[in-house]
Design a protein around this nucleic acid. Structure first.
Lengths: 151, 151
DNA sequence: CCGTTTGTATCTATATTTGTTACAAACGGC
DNA sequence: GCCGTTTGTAACAAATATAGATACAAACGG
């Protein structure tokens, strides 16, 4: 949803968008959008203004905002997590497993961020533009079902 | 937790472990372990036997089981997900965003699997072995707090 | 044949996320 | 300076997912 929001803002250019307008396209409540915009604002990706002529716009060119920035702004930091309840410390494996898995998760997180770091909001916008031109497109044709697990 | 389970099984070697024993080290309920073992069994990573002398053991050498196998066995398929409620199809961005993001998620998933595919259960076991030898270790010393979001 | 263990169903508790209502603070136009 | 508008945030309800627990039939070995 955050990527969706930023893509809309990229499209709008200089013109500020109101959370209500964005919510309409995303098909959700305006407060949900404001929460996202707030997080993006704290990360320095967007600027917002209150008041009658208010709204939000990108803080810098869409080409200079990567999905990695978005990821860091809206996701906490731990996508994968360890045991909810710590393992039994009396077991030789239990004592150390969390430390070792921590390294694994760090490696995974790094790989995720590297992939996301190579994709800009502008490139997303471009993909959408081309998608809407040709309907015989591999992008939009694939996937229409995965409504599972955390948005 | 699945990695924890497999590491224990790798340690046990030929001797089958009961779900109750595993649950003790992981510090959870035996049924939770059995659920994991069942998923791992369906993926062909472990074999289990009922009965008095029953229990579970690895279906093949620990070196030939990667965390990618584990990942596929226990996680559904979509770690990241799209909008819970589909975007507004009347919006130019809303129509195509899911297709484009689907490609992004596929790329991220591929990167995750690639990293996990290079780590075997055996290497996890080795890391734990060395961890427990030297206490001045970067692995186990780092991280002790991230109890956030899904185990 | 009998005790043990898996596999699975079912239920509860807990955590997380989303959606919703409400409202103070900020801002621009008049 | 006032007034309507919009953000930022709090508070709460609803939906969803996961973990933990109890129960029990089926399978297996001695």
């Amino acid at each position: 949803m955050a990527v969706h929001v930023l893509t809309l803002l990229a499209w709008a250019g200089d013109e500020p968008l109101k959370s209500e307008e964005i919510a309409c396209s995303v098909n959700t409540n305006a407060v949900v959008i404001r929460r996202i915009l707030c997080a993006l604002g704290r990360a320095g990706l967007v600027t917002s203004q209150t008041g009658a002529a208010g709204g939000s716009r990108l803080a810098r060119p869409a080409r200079e905002i990567t999905l990695r920035d978005v990821y860091r702004a809206v996701e906490g930091q731990d996508i994968f997590a360890l045991h909810r309840q710590p393992p039994n410390p009396k077991c030789r494996v239990g004592v150390n497993i969390e430390g070792v898995l921590g390294d694994v998760l760090a490696a995974v997180g790094g790989a995720v961020e590297q992939v996301l770091g190579e994709i800009s909001v502008e490139s997303i916008r471009q993909s959408i533009k081309t998608s809407s031109r040709s309907s015989s497109n591999r992008s939009s044709s694939s996937r229409r079902q995965p409504r599972r697990k955390r948005a």
